[in-house]
Simulated assay, not measured.
Amino acid sequence: MNTMFLLVVLIGTAGWITSTVSLRVKSLQVQADRTERRLALLLDHLGIEEPEPAGLDEVRALIRDDRQISAIKAYRRITGAGLAEAKLAVEALAVTERRK
């Protein structure tokens, strides 16, 4: 009986801790998103453009050779971006490369 009660209490405590941490992480993500938007507005207002990472010539060459996956891998290696961010960035670069 005591073991069962202790187990229920431990599971309940673990659930409470998990939900509390999850809510805090969501709150921090909202704050980070808001800060990024404000920073983007400031940079735009001041006319400051973020410099392009060094090494994107390699990514552009892979795009021109129609090697999209290799370009995404190279972009991730160069910038440290995640897969989704790298895919979007390479697709945007591909559009600008096609316009040239």
Rank of each mutant, 00 (worst) to 15 (best):
L41Y: 06
R34V: 08
I72S: 04
R60Q: 06
E85T: 06
S70W: 03
R64A: 07
I69P: 02
L62M: 09
P53L: 08
L83V: 09
L46Y: 11
S27Y: 10
I72P: 12
T35C: 01
E52V: 14
E49K: 14
H45M: 09
R76Q: 14
W16Y: 15
K87D: 10
L41A: 08
V30P: 00
L88N: 09
L43P: 00
A89V: 02
T35V: 06
A54K: 13
I69H: 10
R77D: 11
R24S: 12
V90K: 11
L56N: 01
I69E: 10
E58V: 05
L46D: 11
L23V: 02
W16A: 15
A40M: 07
T20C: 11
A32G: 02
Q31I: 10
A74Q: 13
P51M: 04
A71N: 01
D33K: 14
R77I: 04
D65A: 15
S27A: 15
R64L: 07
E52L: 14
L28V: 09
Y75F: 13
S22T: 12
A84K: 07
R77M: 08
H45V: 04
A89Q: 12
I72M: 12
R77Q: 15
V25D: 07
V90N: 03
L23H: 07
A74R: 13
E58A: 15
S27E: 14
S19E: 14
L23D: 10
G47D: 08
A86S: 14
L43D: 14
A89S: 09
Q31K: 11
R34L: 13
R37C: 06
E49P: 00
A32F: 03
S22C: 09
Q31P: 00
A61S: 11
L42C: 01
T20L: 07
V90H: 09
G55M: 08
E52N: 03
Q31E: 15
E36L: 11
E85F: 09
L62E: 01
V21Y: 10
P53A: 10
Q29Y: 11
R37K: 14
R67P: 00
K87A: 11
L28P: 00
H45I: 03
D57Y: 01
V30Q: 07
Y75M: 12
I63M: 09
R34P: 01
L43R: 15
A74T: 07
D57H: 08
Q29A: 14
G82C: 02
L56A: 04
E58W: 01
V30K: 12
L83P: 03
V21S: 03
R38Q: 12
E50P: 07
T79H: 10
L28R: 15
L56V: 03
K87E: 07
K87C: 00
G80M: 00
P53V: 04
R24W: 11
K73T: 06
E58D: 13
Q29P: 02
D33G: 14
V59F: 14
E50C: 05
T35S: 07
Q68I: 10
K87V: 00
I78H: 02
L83N: 06
I17Q: 12
A40D: 15
A32E: 13
R76V: 00
L42S: 02
L88C: 11
E85K: 15
L46C: 06
